[in-house]
Amino acid sequence: MKRLRSLFLAPAWLVIALGFWIPMGIVAAYSVLTRGMYGGVELPITAESLARFADPLYLGILAKSFVLAGIATVLCAVLGFPLALFVARASSRKNLWLSLVILPFWTSFLIRTYAWVFLLRDTGLFNTMLIATGAISEPMPLLYNDGAVITGLVYGYLPFFVLPVYATLERQDPLLRDAAADLGASPWATLLRVTLPLAAPGIRAGALLVFVPSLGAYITSDLLGGSKTVLIGNLVQNQFTAGRDWPFGAAAGMVLMSVVAVLLVLLLRRDPESLL
């Protein structure tokens, strides 16, 4: 019995080892090696690449990534919690409402980001409409700034927040609300003091699922932020391609991974059932 089970898992172990753990190990190793003459890496071992994050320029990139990801997470929560509540409380066609949240979760992230280029650029739909109605005479600079990046992040990751929150709200006993009402609580008081605290595990999981990809965003900042918005993700990509400084790119990647790991450990210690 036990032998067959290990055979079932064997191919997956092979793929996860070769396709995830070993590559990640290589990046971790590169982050403490020296930059090679023609790209690549060389010995000796050094903490130089990691130390470069003390440089105000890179500290700034790090800080900006955190701030934008933080704002996107808060906006997702503000927009997403009521949406999750709406789906969980819908008296009819609940599956349809849920599907309408799930659908964009899977349909091409790249194309969904591109749609905002179409809407926001100088000759895009918003500016064209505003000029046509006479509200403005010159196009507003809507694209290639931090606001556009935040919009793209919220748009891209909102379903990640809604789904776990919906899952916790769905499991809540409706009798708890009746009890609160019987004891004299207004609907708003019930929402803030019963429903919201009970949904906390879902909110934490949702916040993690939005914050982590936002922090590592690459497509959104590149397409909507233009050259003005460089985040850690763009830094990593740049060092591995045009920059040809693999140790520094690897160090940036490791900084990102350690934030992800810390957040994940914190979440799983609080809500162990969040795991698969």
Binding site: Q237, A250, M257
Partner: peptide, 24 residues
Amino acid sequence: VMAGSLYLSLVTPEIVWGVALLAF
């Protein structure tokens, strides 16, 4: 361990996994 590895792979920023695979 498998569940944890898969979960971590789901939340690993794509850009980091991408450069890791490139280096590999």
